[in-house]
Computed example of a mutant assay.
Amino acid sequence: MLEEFFQRYFIDPIRYNTGYNVVNTLTYAIILGVATLFVYRVLNRLGIKYDNAFFRALIPYMVFGAFTRALTDAGVYPRTYLTVSPGIYFLVFVITFSALLVTHRLFEDWRRVFLWFGWGLVAVDLAALLARGDVDFNWAVLKYFLPALAVAELAVYALSKKLSLVRENSYLFYVHFYDATTTFVGVDFMNYWEQHVLPRFLMALTGTAAVMYPLKFTVLYVALWLMRELEREGEDKELLDFVRMVIFILGFAPGTRNLLRMLMGV
């Protein structure tokens, strides 16, 4: 019974690429929450502070994860449980966390070494793409993406003038509207489909992936409002900033993977 349950809700969706369901979505959300707290506590014990320099050093690893996932869709890398979602998140986490621990232990200027190791991983992905040589880029995607992105980001800018919570966390709204734009363009103009449960339901209900914008805004606004209230009540500000970084990753990585996938025509 348990084996059948696991097969139905966790293995088959990956094997047959049928998208997420309620069960695995909630499970992965819980795992993400636990992993976030675990990593934060480990970093604290090691004396690694989350700051702007640390955040910048993580960016190439975000690009690496998105690029690797897109290359899997393009057939450059084999499709396995570790090269598609959610396994790709585990793979990138293990690589990133291992690189962080090793560089922190061995190098005095570890942030610089950690940063350039991350860009080295991106370079490996780029080399794999160039070596393949048979990926046809679909630059026509940009004629839909760029205007839609401009409108979306202008909307965030306008909202930041009216709402203090948006203004204080504008980078999160910008990146999640970027992610929403890749979904909107992919589904409405490029014949892609949405894998996540709630967005898929809302798209079927409204007939357009533009519903991602109000959905993203609502979820993000509520989450950030709750975090602000917790901060006012004395909760650990550094932990909440670390959670904001995770929220950024959840917008930037999928959005970049979507854009790269569309550009590669897969």
Rank of each mutant, 00 (worst) to 15 (best):
Q7A: 13
F10P: 01
F10I: 00
I11V: 15
I11E: 04
P13L: 13
P13I: 03
Y16H: 12
Y16M: 01
Y16D: 12
N17Q: 08
N17W: 08
T18K: 04
G19E: 05
V22Y: 13
V23D: 00
Y28M: 13
Y28G: 11
I30D: 03
I30G: 06
I31G: 08
I31C: 11
L32E: 06
L32T: 12
V34P: 02
V34Q: 00
A35G: 10
A35C: 06
A35P: 01
T36F: 03
F38C: 01
Y40S: 01
Y40G: 02
Y40C: 06
Y40W: 11
R41M: 06
N44I: 00
N44P: 00
G47T: 02
K49S: 12
Y50L: 03
D51F: 05
N52E: 08
N52Y: 10
N52R: 12
F54C: 03
R56V: 11
A57C: 06
A57L: 02
I59Q: 03
I59E: 01
Y61S: 08
M62R: 07
A66T: 06
F67R: 04
T68V: 12
V76P: 10
Y77W: 14
P78D: 14
Y81M: 14
Y81C: 00
L82R: 10
L82G: 14
L82T: 12
S85V: 11
P86D: 10
G87A: 09
G87I: 01
G87W: 05
I88L: 04
Y89L: 15
Y89G: 03
F90A: 15
L91P: 04
V92D: 09
F93S: 12
F93D: 09
F97L: 13
S98P: 09
S98H: 11
L100W: 11
V102W: 07
H104I: 05
